[in-house]
Amino acid sequence: MADDTQAGGRPDGKNVIGSYTAVGDSFTEGVGDPGPDGTYLGWADRLAVLLADRRARSAPPGDFRYANLAVRGRLLDRIVAEQVPRAKELAPDLVTFCAGGNDILRPGSDPDAIAERFEAAVADLGSAVGTVLVCTGFDTREVPVLRHLRGRIATYTAHVRAIADRYDCPVLDLWSLRSVQDRRAWSPDRLHLSPEGHTRVALRAAQVLGLEVPADPDQPWAPEPRRPASQVRRDNIVWAREHLVPWIGRRLRGESSGDAVAPKRPDLLPL
């Protein structure tokens, strides 16, 4: 067991995380936050940088190690089958486990049943790693298309919080992060965060883990000029043509955006 957590698995704010593995789907892979080399960055990569910086204050350079196993489009069962065993094998001090969102998007999905499978995975991970941080869903009341799923997402979020209580997991509470309810926190596809949105989530995750952060993740956005209704309509038409229709097409064909994608950091390596 890693030595940087309290009994029960929570970071104690004094000892320092030396290794981190991210598990999940497009949210954790970082879709919406492109890096200079063509791969995505995202909140997990940004959190790893903050953790590495904290580690560097008390350990040799390069001592912190990071893996990101997340793949866009993955459903919970495939994440559990492919990523959870690898995360257990790596046995890092910290795992962030954010999954189930793609399942909730499926018509007729049952958040209670999804939560049962999520809990089994949390219990499995907790037996092998130092700390398991879990993520709630976003509040989608202002998000086109997804707003009608708000009840399902809220139910799943309540389950995640309860599971965290049972297994003493820190919680990255995205539902209460008001700054990501601004449209500028989202990429043009309106399904993934923008670079600024990912940055704010990384800062909140660091706070949850007891780190001092360089900025307030819930700092209000600068006032935005009111857009004319005609501009809003044009933007919605462009979004539907370029993002919504292809997304629906993939669902009808049984395809996933991650079918040919491999994890970007499958091994624990220094940053």
Rank of each mutant, 00 (worst) to 15 (best):
residue 258 G to F: 01
residue 146 L to S: 09
residue 205 A to H: 00
residue 69 L to M: 02
residue 268 L to T: 02
residue 155 T to C: 13
residue 77 D to I: 05
residue 269 L to E: 14
residue 58 S to Q: 09
residue 247 W to A: 11
residue 98 C to T: 08
residue 120 A to V: 08
residue 28 T to Y: 06
residue 57 R to G: 14
residue 232 V to W: 01
residue 129 V to D: 00
residue 195 P to E: 03
residue 51 L to W: 05
residue 57 R to V: 11
residue 52 A to G: 13
residue 254 G to Q: 07
residue 201 V to N: 03
residue 68 N to R: 01
residue 241 R to G: 03
residue 178 R to G: 04
residue 92 P to Y: 10
residue 79 I to F: 07
residue 91 A to E: 01
residue 264 K to A: 13
residue 123 A to Q: 10
residue 155 T to Y: 07
residue 137 G to Q: 15
residue 110 D to H: 06
residue 231 Q to C: 09
residue 27 F to K: 08
residue 217 P to V: 10
residue 152 R to E: 05
residue 102 N to F: 11
residue 256 S to Y: 05
residue 94 L to Y: 09
residue 204 R to Y: 05
residue 10 R to Q: 13
residue 117 R to F: 01
residue 231 Q to N: 07
residue 84 V to Y: 06
residue 86 R to T: 11
residue 208 V to N: 10
residue 148 H to M: 15
residue 167 Y to D: 00
residue 66 Y to A: 04
residue 139 D to N: 14
residue 73 G to F: 07
residue 4 D to F: 14
residue 32 G to W: 00
residue 232 V to F: 00
residue 103 D to E: 05
residue 205 A to D: 03
residue 187 S to V: 12
residue 167 Y to W: 12
residue 123 A to C: 08
residue 99 A to Q: 10
residue 178 R to V: 14
residue 158 A to F: 02
residue 28 T to E: 03
residue 258 G to Q: 01
residue 157 T to H: 06
residue 265 R to K: 08
